[in-house]
Amino acid sequence: MNAHLVRTAAEGRRHGPRARLRATARSEWVKLWSVRSAPAVLGATAVVIVLGALVLCSGYRSGWASMSASERAAFDPASTSLRGIEPAQLFVGALGVLAVTGEYGTGLIRTTLAATPQRAQVLVVKGLVLGAVVWAVTTASSFGAFALGQHLLTGPVPHAELEDPGVLRAVLGGGLYLTLIALFGTALGALSRSTPLGLAALFGVLLVLPLMVGLLPSGLADGILPYLPGEAGSQVWHVMPPSPHSLGPWQGFSLFALDVVVSAGAVLTLTRKRDV
């Protein structure tokens, strides 16, 4: 090859798989922050998590007098302040799906894969970059929601401290759960390669499935419900188990993590063979 073809373009090139990985991560980082949707959705996620604490904790404070003794005994102040996670999972899940399907929709994926033919690496790094950002934002929001919620729970209403058993785990668990949701969305987006299909799959599993199972006779429902991905995963941000049949916090979280790993594995085997 002619010597004059080697020019400034090659200067940044380093050798070895670590350099390749770093380059892919930088590219995905630039892509994530250079469209308005990611910061907007992440901002909305933070707002919803904190807003959930505001609405629910003030709701319990004002309605405490009308609650029965058994309802009061079942009240979990820590996870009540964290329940903004339930609507927030819509945002981070959609962000995960769109991170992949957006590229397929525009055809940008062809440019991306022409620049980095290591497809598995592109998808894994895309998930990790998004996951890291989602983790940082949602963990910080969980702490904010917890602080605000406990501040609102005054007078006769019990409140929680971070030092209480299981509370710090639950607050940290909020960020971990939402991070897994984003990764689950990324995997389902990569499997379906279509925004509506990916969203339908994600929210079908997370939101519709538990509602469906809840319609069944209680004996049957109790046997299925705890093992559904969203139900299992959300134990990690609860201090008191929501039902006697619930899995343990880390047990449930591991099961959800396994679901995510399995769907990611399916993606990685498929992408090798698929045309784009």
């Binding site: 373009a9 250079s34 980095t116």
Partner: peptide
């Protein structure tokens, strides 16, 4: 757009 492509291949 070009920056993300450049980053993917270690291009300055």
């Amino acid at each position: 757009h070009l920056h993300s492509l450049a980053a993917a291949n270690g291009i300055p």
